[in-house]
């Protein structure tokens, strides 16, 4: 078998510190990635629900071939934004003027 190609996932550049130190920055980055994975799980579950509601069962290939229509995409987008709003509430509050 040919050697697996691995693409780089980290950009070269200055290391900037935003919050108290790099470890606080790293934790926030990890929280956002976990939030992203919760969103992926929720969408996957939603796809499975739709497939079962329609076909009564699922074929694993159907998951990758599932294409949500415009309405469902909008609904998912709304749900992702409300997830983000809840996760990022402390930061949103900190930015409120009063």
């Amino acid at each position: 078998m040919a050697k697996k190609i691995i693409l780089p996932r980290v950009a070269k550049g200055k290391n900037l510190v935003y919050l108290d130190d790099n470890s606080v920055d790293n934790i926030l980055a990890m929280v956002m990635t976990l939030t992203q994975e919760i969103s992926v799980l929720t969408d996957r579950l939603n796809t499975i629900e739709h497939l079962i509601a329609k076909n009564g069962q699922i074929d694993l290939d159907d998951i990758d071939n599932f294409e949500p229509d415009y309405q469902l995409q909008e609904k998912r987008s709304e749900r992702r934004k409300s997830l983000l709003k809840r996760v990022l509430l402390p930061i949103e509050k900190a930015l409120d003027s009063k």
């Binding site: 956002m32 939030t35 992203q36 994975e37 969103s39 992926v40 969408d43 996957r44 796809t47 998951i63 990758d64 599932f66 995409q73 998912r76 987008s77 992702r80 934004k81 983000l84």
Partner: peptide, 13 residues
Amino acid sequence: HDEAVRQDFVTDF
């Protein structure tokens, strides 16, 4: 499937 919705999350983020 999961790659697509992972990308969608970034768009919404």
